[in-house]
Design a protein around this nucleic acid. Sequence first.
DNA 1: CCTCTAGATAGAAGTCTGTCAACATAGACG
DNA 2: CGTCTATGTTGACAGACTTCTATCTAGAGG
Lengths: 121, 121
Amino acid sequence: MSKQLPLAAMDVCCSPLAREPLSEPQAVELAKVFKAISDPIRLRLLSLIASHEGGEACVCDLTDAFDVTGPTISHHLKVLRESGLIDGERRGTWVYYRVHPEVLARLSAVLVPADPATVPA
Amino acid sequence: MSKQLPLAAMDVCCSPLAREPLSEPQAVELAKVFKAISDPIRLRLLSLIASHEGGEACVCDLTDAFDVTGPTISHHLKVLRESGLIDGERRGTWVYYRVHPEVLARLSAVLVPADPATVPA
DNA sequence: CCTCTAGATAGAAGTCTGTCAACATAGACG
DNA sequence: CGTCTATGTTGACAGACTTCTATCTAGAGG
C-alpha cells in the first residue's frame, strides 16, 4: 500500500523557491506534489487526515464528509498516496490513512518567501 | 494588469491544514492557488521572479529560460497573475513581474505540519 | 505617421482529469 | 464455504488544461 516518496530523495528541503531558481527536475517533482493538493476534495482529505485525532483517519470517516461517491474518494486518496503525502494501512475491515509530515514540511519550506533583507537591491 | 487577490481576503493565514479541517470554501480557494503552482514551468517562473535581483524580472529574462514559445510563457504568467501570486507592470517597452510575498507566506503557513506534541493521541 | 519590437490574445488540437456506474477484492463472521 | 461490508479497480465520458500558430496592441524611435 506504500509507494516511493519522490520528494524524500530530493534536495528541496532547505532551499526556498525565492532563494534561487528551481532546477527543471526539482520543478517537475514539486509540481507533481502541488498538483496532488490542487483539488479541493484532496485538500480537505489531507486536512481531515492530518487533523484527525491520533493522526490517522479511517476511509469510512472521510467518505461521509463529501458529496461524491466512494470510488471518487478512493481515486483521490490514491493520488495523494502516489504523491507521497499520505500512506494507508489496512487493519481488519477498515483502512486507515496518515500523513507524512516531512513531505508537508518540505513543501512548506519551499514556499517560504524571500527575506526582504536578503533580496539584492 | 492587477487583479483581486482571493487569498488575501481569506482567513487561511494562521490555520495550518493539520490543525483543523479546512472548510469547503477555504479548500476551493487554496486549491486554485496550488493549481497555479502545479506546473513545472509556472513553478520555475515563480522561482525565477522571486529570486531575481531586485525582486522583479522582465518577461524577456524569463522567456529565454524555457523551450516553449512566447505565447505559452504569456499564458503561464497570466495564470500566476490571476491566482494572485505575481503582478506585472509595464515600464516602457518591457513588462516586469514581481511576487506577492504575503500570498507565498500564507501558502507556506497552511502546509506546516502538525506539531506531534499537539496531536491528540 | 510608419515601422519595429515586446508582449498579450484568440482559436484550435491533443492530452489529462474528475466523476460515475459496474465490477472486483479482502477480511469478518457465521 | 457463503455472505456481508468496506475499499479499490476499470472503463467511459465530459470538461479543463497545455501548447501551438496567427493575429493584435502598446510604446519607442525615426
